[in-house]
């Protein structure tokens, strides 16, 4: 559409620090990191900041309340010279509403034809990201682990303490639940007693149902003090206990020492290995 686009790099100490020093204390770690990214970009000089208000991205579901309020939160941390562009994405009245919001938002800046082409390009790029998930890591010990948790945590190596890298070093294959497309997780979540409201939780639980008998263990990754994830942790624990699938809950916060994380992962992999050997 003719914009010059600036993106922030993957989360690092500098970005997180920017978030920690400014963001309200009660916010979860990913939210603080998000504010850090925003402040980082503002320092680079920009005119428009694109933070969509994701109310619902799948019909019949909501995103978490923190995501819902994201534009309002971000507004506090940007100078008046920066304009916040936040189209409301609300799929509750049909998935088509989301395209409509994006297109209408674009019309202010370019002709209908250009906006339409940009939207198609963006969708093609998104489909590339959303293709079937690949297991990463190492096949060294022949162990498979499913990681549950929202994508903004499982994909952020800085926030999750390089969980994937550490597991790979321990000789384990890892698949992230968040990488499963809705075409798999939606049908899989139908066997749940009740469909969760929140999209990220439904994706995690759907992926769990899909993978339960194909993996050796499950790790739930959650930000400390995240209510939805705390609830999900209990549901996952109940489900895995019934099938005797090993389950580890990890909470991430601002600690900088990786020792505690390594201890848990090491012990968990030992456990899986000994279990498999019988």
């Amino acid at each position: 559409m003719g914009f010059e686009v600036i993106t922030s790099p993957p989360t690092n100490q500098e970005i997180l620090e920017l978030g920690l020093t400014a963001c309200v204390d009660g916010a979860c770690l990913p939210l603080k990191a998000f504010v850090g990214h925003v402040r980082f970009l503002v320092n680079r000089g920009l005119e428009l900041l694109f933070v969509p208000q994701a109310i619902s991205v799948v019909p019949g579901e909501y995103t978490c309340t923190n995501l819902l309020g994201l534009p309002d939160l971000v507004q506090q941390y940007i100078p008046s010279s920066v304009r916040l562009l936040s189209p409301a994405l609300d799929a509750r009245k049909g998935a088509g509403k989301i395209s409509f919001s994006y297109l209408r938002c674009g019309l202010e800046f370019a002709s209908a034809l250009r906006v339409l082409k940009a939207w198609q390009t963006a969708q093609a790029a998104q489909r590339q990201v959303d293709t079937a998930p690949k297991a990463n890591g190492s096949t060294g010990r022949g162990l498979n682990i499913l990681i549950l948790g929202p994508r903004y945590l499982t994909d952020d190596a800085y926030l999750n303490g390089d969980l994937m890298g550490k597991l790979a070093a321990l000789g384990v294959q890892v698949t992230a639940a968040a990488a499963f497309p809705d075409s798999i997780t939606l049908p899989a979540s139908r066997s749940l007693a009740k469909r969760p409201f929140w999209t990220s939780m439904r994706r995690s639980l759907g992926a769990l149902e899909h993978c339960l008998h194909r993996v050796d263990g499950v790790i739930s990754l959650a930000p400390f003090a995240c209510v939805a994830e705390a609830m999900q942790g209990v549901m996952v624990a109940e489900r895995t206990a019934k099938t005797e699938c090993a389950h580890l809950e990890l909470h991430v916060d601002e600690h900088s020492s990786p020792v505690g994380l390594v201890t848990r992962l090491e012990a968990f992999c030992d456990l899986l290995e000994r279990k498999r050997r019988g």
């Binding site: 600690h255 012990a267 968990f268 030992d270």
Partner: peptide, 21 residues
Amino acid sequence: QDSKLIILRDGVVVDFAMNTV
């Protein structure tokens, strides 16, 4: 600095929990 609960069955660790933060 930490506390742990280790669950074993038939001589194999099947579950554990450590106090987190």
